[in-house]
Amino acid sequence: MGVQTQEYATPAAVPPVRLFKAMSLEFHNLFPKLVEIIQSIEFTEGTGGAGTIKKLTTVEGGETKYVLHRVDEIDETKFVYNFSIIGGTGLADTLEKVSFKSQLVEGPNGGSIRNVHVDYFTKGDYNLSEEELKAGKAKVEGLVKLVEGYLLANPDY
């Protein structure tokens, strides 16, 4: 098994407390409303804290897939949300798991910056291509921007 790492920071125009609530604490309620391909997110183990496993089911191009999302750590005071994709039909055959460590910090003008560290645990001697790494980063940054847009349009959320 190999490990490939990526780090990046995504700015958002909403405060960390709001973005953290939406992307971490309310993820299972909000994302099926915002992301068209997400059919459902259900708890299979736990109640939301560390150790919780969520099954995220998607339908894309008529094909249903799922991934298992394990919550590794939540720290509401430091805006830390760490999780891993640990299995499912939506996890690429070349990957054992993908672990995300994220922290929101204060950004300029009352906004925030979402710092992300991703570890891709590959099977055998497989190495992710630059295109695969860019696509993974683009997905995560796209989700941040999607949630940011929702929060800006819904200031009471």
Rank of each mutant, 00 (worst) to 15 (best):
L56D: 00
S24M: 06
I74T: 13
E76F: 00
L91I: 00
V80F: 05
G88W: 07
A12M: 12
E60K: 14
A22L: 08
V67P: 01
F31A: 06
E106A: 15
V67D: 01
P155H: 01
K78Y: 05
V144I: 15
L151R: 07
H117N: 15
V14C: 12
L91R: 02
F83W: 13
R70L: 02
A22S: 09
I86P: 01
S112G: 14
D75G: 05
I74F: 05
K123R: 10
E106V: 15
I86M: 08
E26A: 15
K33M: 11
F100S: 03
G2T: 02
Y126V: 10
P15F: 07
E106R: 08
K139L: 07
V140F: 09
A50V: 06
L56A: 04
E141I: 11
T47P: 00
Q4F: 05
G2R: 07
S40V: 11
K123P: 00
Y81H: 15
H69D: 09
L68E: 04
V144A: 04
E76Q: 09
I113S: 02
E7W: 02
L34E: 06
G48P: 06
D125A: 13
L151I: 05
G90Q: 08
E106W: 03
A153I: 08
D75N: 15
V67T: 11
E63N: 15
